[in-house]
Amino acid sequence: MLRVGSVILFKAIKEKLIQSGLLIEKERELRLLAACIVARGHALLEGVPGVAKTTMAKALARLLNLEFRRIQMTPDLLPLDIIGFYVYDQKTGEFKLRKGPIFTNILLADEINRASPRTQSALLEAMQERQVTIEGRTFKLEEPFMVTATQNPIEMEGTFPLPEAQLDRFLVKIETGYPSSKGFKEMLKRIDEIDNAVEELKPIVTREDVLKAVEEARRVRVDDSIYDYIVAIVEESRKHPAVKLGGSPRAGIAILRLARAWAYLEGRSYVIPDDVKAVALPALVHRIILKPEYEVEGVTTSQVVNDVLNKVPVPKP
């Protein structure tokens, strides 16, 4: 079993959050976020306000002993508000660098689609390059670095929807919804504890452990038949009748990386078809463009991915 320190990473995260009463029906979302860090990707969380998107990202950062920052994206936000800028120091007579909130480990870009396309581009460029350039000087961002952007699927007024090319930069799109009635009741009962619990969470691993996990996840074994399976899924996504633009090779890479991380978080040193199935939906759902006639009929990209998974045979024997 692969371990970080003395624990299986995700099992430890989960146990800690259950103990503190923070984990209520968001296990899948939390695991995807953790997998995203291990796979060196970025996550787009889509959900209505008040479904614990911020709490989840914050709790994960605390448990992994990582620095967490949050930016509230607004239309008047400028790129330099994110990446930083030089200010003139009258005492020394020199320009001093004031680093922006991007210099962190986990950055929560709340309501990313409210920022102007220019600001979005600056952020997405930093996500891709893992570095920022301020006044001609390039600064490497500290690893691990993950952007968790959120967007509200309902409110569209006053927003700048992310183009497909930029959506492709996110390794996963996690669609998060309301808890069940039971979960909701549970949450209400524990609301006072939850408020303090996030602040009181103690790290279970060090930053170095997380970096080690990133390295180890790369060495997770992938059988040849698993590669075939991923290829078949991505190719099948292009053949679906409702699809205008299917999965790109980058989508296949995303599935592979996430599947490795998914297996690693479970303490396995090899990928199984279940890992691929588990990550295919969040890895593909934002990369598929539907034909308008199917879109108006109410077909969703999630349905398409599920159709694909129900059609492609798993490796045999």
Partner: peptide, 8 residues
């Protein structure tokens, strides 16, 4: 089924 994994 062909689309079913061993765990499923």
């Amino acid at each position: 089924l062909d689309v079913q994994t061993h765990r499923e």
